[in-house]
């Protein structure tokens, strides 16, 4: 039992950090610009494929630097020449723009790299197991992911709260007109934020690509779970996103470890018959089976009872 708890905690934290890596860029964009960036996962995918391509040519580490820069640059261009024109038509228009963009990016990735999964490898320098708990190995690469995510979190937090740029960003989030009046170029700040958000997604892609599957459907697979993280954490709150990622990671991991169903719980009290034949499915479903839908349940509950999210200060 202790073994399962310990291992599940570790797995949950690892998964949560991976989620945070992907969601950090989204929370930045979402909180800054109010844009539900449906194409965010596409930039994550672009990051993975750029990383793959660069690792083929010069190696993994240059890819970790170059791929996000490239993706961030593309993101900034898209903001400048696409999203900015759409901005004045409201959030629905922006959302649909990113929706269409996701289609376009996926199709272009398929044209360049094909539809089959690519063999994106963990760098040899990290291809060993870091330590062993209860005979379960933990690869060094996963530890690297963990540390990297925490590093990004700390760096972003410092930039946003301690630097001049961060303060301007935060100000233009709440008072865009005032910031504009003070002589700052708000559209340019938005462009930079969008580019930075895309670059962060790409970083997640470069790192997650070798650990997961690098394939043209990887963006669609990730889907709305990122929104869940951002909204549960609270708009505009990086710490919230961090906590929400951890929470969802742990929740899902522990749910998998539990093999309980409602009938088991009633079984404890000596009730064994199923009262309603029509509800027999609910009766039999185990917690493990519903693990992946738990985040959505959490999302609905949080929004109903605490619309600002966990750490948010603003109504969504």
């Amino acid at each position: 039992m202790l073994e399962l708890v310990l291992v599940s905690t570790l797995n949950g934290v690892l998964y949560g950090m991976l989620l945070f890596l992907m969601a950090s860029g989204l929370t930045l964009i979402f909180s800054m610009m109010g844009v539900l960036n449906f194409a965010h996962a596409s930039f994550y995918m672009l990051g993975a494929f750029f990383g793959f391509q660069i690792s083929q040519l010069v190696g993994f580490w240059p890819g970790l630097i170059l791929a996000p820069i490239l993706a961030g640059f593309i993101g900034a261009l898209i903001e400048r020449y696409g999203l900015r024109n759409v901005h004045r038509h409201g959030h629905v228009a922006e959302l649909l723009f990113t929706f269409g963009l996701a289609f376009v990016i996926e199709e272009i990735v398929q044209m360049i790299w094909g539809k089959l999964p690519r063999d994106y490898r963990i760098p040899p320098s990290l291809d060993f197991s870091a330590f062993t708990i209860f005979s379960t190995n933990y690869p060094a690469y996963k530890m690297f992911m963990l540390l990297f995510a925490i590093g990004i979190f700390v760096a972003l937090l410092l930039v946003l709260t301690r630097t001049r740029v961060g303060l301007i960003i935060q100000a233009s989030l709440t008072h865009p007109h005032m910031v504009g009046m003070l002589g700052h170029n708000v559209p340019r700040i938005f462009m930079l934020v969008f580019g930075l958000g895309c670059a962060l997604a790409a970083v997640a892609g470069v790192i997650a690509g070798p650990a997961l599957v690098t394939q043209s459907n990887m963006a669609a697979l990730l889907g709305p779970i990122l929104f869940v993280v951002v909204v549960i954490g609270g708009l505009g709150s990086l710490s919230g996103a961090f906590i929400a990622s951890l929470l969802i990671g742990l929740l899902q991991t522990f749910a998998v470890a539990v093999n309980l169903s409602i009938s088991d719980i009633f079984g404890v009290f000596g009730i064994h018959t199923n009262p309603l034949p029509f509800l027999s499915d609910i009766w039999r479903v185990t917690v493990a089976q519903i693990a992946p839908i738990m985040p959505y349940l959490l999302l609905v509950l949080i929004l109903v009872f605490r619309p600002t999210g966990l750490m948010g200060t603003r109504d969504t």
């Binding site: 291992v7 797995n11 998964y15 991976l18 379960t136 997961l212 991991t253 998998v256």
Partner: peptide
């Protein structure tokens, strides 16, 4: 996306 919890159970 992450099968590690399942693998932990198998183990």
């Amino acid at each position: 996306t992450d099968f590690a919890p399942y693998i932990a159970k198998i183990k």
